[in-house]
Simulated assay, not measured.
Amino acid sequence: MLFTDLPFLDRFAAARQAGFDAVEFLFPYAYDPDQLSERLHRHQLQLVLHNMPPGDWSAGDRGMACDPRRSDEFRVGVQQAIAFATELGVTRLHCMAGKLPGGLAPERAHETLVANLQYAADRCQEHGIRVLIEPINTYDIPGYFLNRSGQALDIIDACARSNVWLQYDIYHMQRMEGELANTIRACLPRIGHMQLADTPGRHEPGTGEINYPFLFQLLDELGYDGWIGCEYHPLAGTADGLGWLARQGAGG
């Protein structure tokens, strides 16, 4: 979502030049793994995360893991994701739950999601990979099945797999439930990755209502030592907007 004025493969160099040590992106599947690996090694970047295949994105799919009619397709996607992850040194894969299919009871979607996550977790465990699930707000993706942090923790508990973790996106959870500080504090032992953007607008920290200096200080006090992905749309150019890192207390 950053450096979008550049072709995708050129964004790695831009990220390194801007001072980033690591990157993440949605999907690697349009590229040869060797292309991506070469960019990562050339610019000394770690790839922290990518998503499992989401289905037909252009047709509106946003994952399929809660859809019992697509479990076979989901399992093929898990193997594809693992193949890319092992080639690229990725130890976290985000599994998108998908939208609740029309006419499907939420209880059946929950059961399907748990079963599919158990399958993914078992396959990923063999490669030392964590499976992450992320609650996403239903304003940006109407009908998205997994949309609250408590729901995500219930699903993680039902999976009973040590490598299923919560991906906590501050922007999405501000829109869905607020109460950020207390929720982060309660969820932190099971958070495997975080992401950020401000709201309204989904721009960089400092452009909206979220008190990021307070949250960054809280994360330091709580001892969070994981990555935080910059999943926002820059208000202006990416490089011009990176001053927030210092102004909001997130370092240089």
Rank of each mutant, 00 (worst) to 15 (best):
M1C: 07
M1F: 03
T4N: 10
L6C: 04
L9C: 01
D10H: 09
A18G: 00
V23G: 10
L26R: 09
D34K: 15
D34R: 14
D34N: 14
L36F: 12
L36H: 09
R39Q: 15
R39C: 10
H41L: 15
H43I: 10
Q46C: 15
L47V: 00
V48Q: 14
L49H: 11
N51I: 05
M52T: 10
M52A: 15
M52R: 06
G55S: 03
G55A: 07
G55C: 08
D56F: 11
W57P: 02
S58Q: 12
G63R: 02
G63L: 04
M64A: 08
D67I: 01
P68W: 10
R69N: 13
F74H: 08
F74V: 09
R75H: 14
R75K: 15
V76L: 14
V76C: 11
G77A: 06
G77L: 07
T86R: 14
E87W: 07
L88S: 07
L93W: 00
C95M: 13
K99T: 09
G103S: 01
L104T: 02
E107Q: 12
E111K: 06
L113N: 04
L113G: 07
N116H: 01
Q118C: 14
E126D: 12
I129A: 08
I129Q: 03
I129H: 02
V131A: 11
E134R: 05
N137P: 00
D140I: 06
Y144T: 02
N147R: 09
G150M: 01
Q151Y: 07
D157H: 11
D157V: 05
A158Y: 04
A158R: 11
A160Q: 14
R161H: 06
N163I: 01
V164S: 07
V164N: 07
W165I: 12
Q167R: 01
Q167L: 09
Y168G: 03
D169R: 03
I170P: 04
H172Y: 06
R175I: 15
R175N: 12
E177N: 11
E179W: 13
R185P: 08
P189I: 05
R190I: 05
G192V: 04
G192D: 02
M194K: 03
Q195W: 08
L196F: 02
A197Q: 00
H203C: 00
G206Q: 03
G208M: 02
G208H: 04
Y212V: 00
Y212W: 10
L215K: 08
F216T: 01
L219R: 04
D220C: 10
G223I: 04
Y224I: 06
D225H: 13
G226H: 00
G229L: 07
H233K: 14
A236Y: 13
G243D: 12
W244V: 06
A250M: 01
A250V: 04
